Amino acid sequence: MDANQQTRANPFGMDENCRNCPALCETRSQVVHGYGDVGADFLFVGEAPSAGADRVGVPFAGDDRAAAFQRILQRLGLCDATSDLERPELVNVYLTNLTRCRDPDRAPTDQEVDSCEPFLNAEIRMINPEIIVPIGERALTEIGEEYTTTPAADLSLPDCHARAIRGRGFELVPMIDPLEQTDEQTQAWVEGFAALMASDYRQTKGRRKR
């Protein structure tokens, strides 16, 4: 699987007509694969496409949740404040979800998360991020159980919000859903992530220099 950085939308050319979850084929507008910089240090992972993402085909885009999320990235210099809400200009960031299709009435089932796992695993392997940001409880549980040795009972929000957790070759910095954060929680996450960005966060694992 080769990356195509001429496009930030689905740069790995993943299956846009996937029918592994028949029920979701009836409720989705489109399959929403990852978006952003294929050489990014920072990988953000949500649970499933929002209504806006389902409409525009880009994770964390096109609605109020996207606006709140992008404002956080803008404060860190990771998103151009003048860019289109539906096609944000990201810097050193890649966005994706556990699942690629939306049901407007329910959260993804365990089977649907399992069906999409190869897509997420391929993105993590190809991007080889330094920092993974699970957004929301479900993303934290799935990413934490797969990629850390931290006991599942110790992985929960809001306790882990803005707290760096050692993973296998990278760190996790969990985030509460942007629409559910208080101003204080947003400030804590921004300050914590800014400090991490200013530190020597890169691991020794054969990454190319940026």
Rank of each mutant, 00 (worst) to 15 (best):
residue 66 A to C: 05
residue 67 A to W: 12
residue 68 A to S: 12
residue 71 R to D: 11
residue 72 I to F: 07
residue 72 I to W: 02
residue 73 L to R: 00
residue 73 L to W: 06
residue 74 Q to D: 13
residue 75 R to M: 10
residue 75 R to P: 08
residue 75 R to V: 07
residue 76 L to E: 07
residue 76 L to V: 06
residue 76 L to M: 12
residue 78 L to M: 13
residue 79 C to R: 09
residue 79 C to A: 11
residue 80 D to N: 14
residue 81 A to Q: 15
residue 81 A to D: 11
residue 82 T to H: 12
residue 82 T to Q: 15
residue 83 S to W: 08
residue 83 S to V: 11
residue 84 D to S: 08
residue 86 E to Y: 09
residue 86 E to D: 15
residue 87 R to G: 09
residue 90 L to P: 02
residue 90 L to S: 03
residue 91 V to M: 11
residue 93 V to D: 01
residue 93 V to H: 00
residue 94 Y to M: 12
residue 94 Y to K: 08
residue 94 Y to R: 08
residue 94 Y to T: 08
residue 95 L to P: 02
residue 96 T to N: 01
residue 97 N to R: 04
residue 98 L to A: 01
residue 100 R to G: 03
residue 100 R to S: 08
residue 100 R to V: 00
residue 102 R to H: 04
residue 102 R to A: 05
residue 102 R to I: 03
residue 105 D to Y: 08
residue 105 D to A: 09
residue 106 R to I: 02
residue 106 R to T: 09
residue 107 A to S: 14
residue 108 P to E: 10
residue 108 P to F: 05
residue 108 P to W: 03
residue 111 Q to M: 13
residue 112 E to V: 00
residue 112 E to C: 06
residue 113 V to D: 00
residue 117 E to H: 13
residue 117 E to P: 06
residue 120 L to R: 11
residue 120 L to V: 06
residue 121 N to C: 15
residue 121 N to Q: 15
residue 121 N to D: 15
residue 122 A to V: 10
residue 122 A to P: 08
residue 124 I to A: 02
residue 124 I to E: 03
residue 126 M to L: 14
residue 126 M to H: 13
residue 127 I to C: 07
residue 129 P to S: 01
residue 129 P to Q: 02
residue 129 P to W: 00
residue 129 P to E: 04
residue 131 I to E: 04
residue 133 V to R: 04
residue 134 P to C: 10
residue 134 P to S: 12
residue 134 P to N: 13
residue 135 I to P: 11
residue 136 G to L: 03
residue 138 R to I: 13
residue 138 R to E: 12
residue 139 A to L: 06
residue 140 L to R: 03
residue 141 T to E: 15
residue 141 T to H: 15
residue 141 T to W: 13
residue 142 E to F: 15
residue 144 G to W: 00
residue 144 G to K: 01
residue 144 G to N: 00
residue 145 E to V: 14
residue 147 Y to S: 04
residue 147 Y to W: 10
residue 147 Y to C: 04
residue 147 Y to Q: 05
residue 148 T to H: 04
residue 149 T to K: 12
residue 150 T to A: 10
residue 151 P to K: 11
residue 151 P to V: 09
residue 152 A to D: 09
residue 152 A to F: 06
residue 153 A to P: 06
residue 154 D to H: 10
residue 155 L to V: 09
residue 156 S to F: 02
residue 156 S to E: 04
residue 156 S to Y: 04
residue 157 L to E: 06
residue 158 P to S: 06
residue 158 P to C: 05
residue 158 P to L: 06
residue 159 D to L: 11
residue 159 D to A: 13
residue 160 C to K: 08
residue 160 C to D: 12
residue 160 C to V: 05
residue 161 H to P: 05
residue 161 H to T: 04
residue 162 A to N: 03
residue 163 R to P: 01
residue 163 R to A: 02
residue 168 R to H: 10
residue 168 R to W: 07
residue 168 R to A: 06
residue 169 G to A: 11
residue 169 G to C: 14
residue 170 F to Y: 12
residue 171 E to A: 13
residue 172 L to H: 00
residue 173 V to F: 07
